[in-house]
Design a protein around this nucleic acid. Structure first.
Lengths: 155, 155, 155, 155
DNA sequence: TTTT
DNA sequence: TTTT
């Protein structure tokens, strides 16, 4: 019986091809950023698109599915939980935080079509409005995030 | 019509009395931390309690309800969305990030009983007193978070 | 402040073109059935696809969006609440029940491509595995559901 | 990987003590009704409380928890999925439907205090006694629901 | 920093 | 049928 609830539901597009690696202990880990688009009114009352970037991470079987089926531009629905890791930045001595969504369930909704491919698939224009300026995963580098270790794997 | 989904559901306990203030533009803002408890197996296979802390923020009418009814220890169910704000840290010159849950809906579930009170149950007077001891958003100060300005208010 | 939670999240495909009409009071109403696909193990331990049909209903602005953009085969994500209406069946004198999902939010994910269309869009095969045996909205007829009146509109 | 999404989140109060039984195949089944309270505006624009009743069902380990801890009046948060079972009514020959929420996760939030108890609060003994007065699934009988058989168990 |  |  759960003691609390910590649930996240996201539907959006993948910013870059996922990074997939193994922990020293042999657990597969996939991580990527996901953009969720939102419309909201600005201070002048006009509708504005706003993109929120999320850091996602998955382990084991889910990481395999991501490795095999998810790529830049993929449209995904995911359920997961919020986790914030913290560490001491060696350079500045400051405490750093990184909030991630640990994926529990994943539904693949669409992928952008191959380069010049004609036939079926999803038209490229689906993903055209998808800007790529500063993907959230960039932040990891900036941060000197020590990365995920086996201690971070919650099972 | 929404273009994506960015939804968070949390059920847990409030860590400290909420901080409530107004933006220069006059919008009421409430912020506090919420702990969600989870049971998970550790590497030895034993069940461990794990607490995840979340930074929550609410505006206007929801902020009023929080000011009037929510305090340290309150058990809440909330729905909201994830937002990550970023700014340049003046001291280190580094880019800093703070992930928050913007509350859309709130259900008040219970409050802990008064200090030494015997009978137990939920004392109504708990919600009348509104003390401001150590605001949950203290952490923000620690990393020189410039705080919420009118530009951060998404409506 | 909400007193309880009654929330439904569905992602699936529309069974038939939506029915759109107005109440005597002039409120636009859209209704349609949505199939959600699930994989689960049967008693022999084999993975089986199972389709669950849901009765969906929307009013006013959301009904307009449905009228204009949703059709048979559309892939949708919706959020809503569960409502069960009941009435006395005139023929049998029995009490009848009909459970519906009242849509609050809707995200359009994809539509099947036009008849023989070649170019972009979504390949027809996406929707081929989508069986149509007994769409849930059929049930309304069987039931002698008296239909939605202005009294059923919750606002 | 899920192919669709069918998720329900409810927070409310249990209407009657749960009915707990075993299928012929030996699987434990618990069923009960849950009331979710909602405030909404009526046609005169006044806020009205409205209660929605849901039929809930759980199997195996979750059914055990319900048997041991849930009773009339308990406040619960649950996650589950919508399922509609149908059968032919022997008397009228009509097709009957019953929509239920299959519980995946359950969080126990509170129980009402003992009858004439003074102190208030949640008495531990509340959960020890397990009376079976008027099972919530009585309604099923009324409409000749054949009940759950091993074929209805989705695993 | 909460709660059981 | 619950609860506040």
């Amino acid at each position: 019986m759960a003691k609390g609830v910590n649930k996240v539901l996201l539907l959006g597009n993948v910013g870059k091809d996922p990074e997939v690696r193994s922990t020293p202990g042999g657990t597969l880990v996939a991580s990527f950023s996901l953009a969720t688009a939102d419309r909201q009114k600005d201070q002048q009352g006009n509708w504005q698109d706003k993109t929120e970037w999320h850091n996602l991470v998955a382990f084991s079987r889910t990481a395999e599915i991501i490795r095999d089926y998810v790529k830049k531009g993929s449209q995904l629905y995911i359920e997961g939980k919020i986790q914030t890791r913290s560490w001491d930045d060696k350079e500045s001595g400051q405490k750093k935080y990184r909030t991630e969504i640990l994926i529990n369930e994943l539904t693949l909704l669409g992928k952008p079509s191959e380069g010049g491919s004609s036939g079926g698939g999803y038209s490229k224009s689906n993903t055209a409005s998808f800007d790529q300026r500063t993907p959230a995963s960039e932040a990891a580098t900036t941060y000197a995030d020590p990365g995920i270790t086996d201690d971070d794997i919650p099972f």
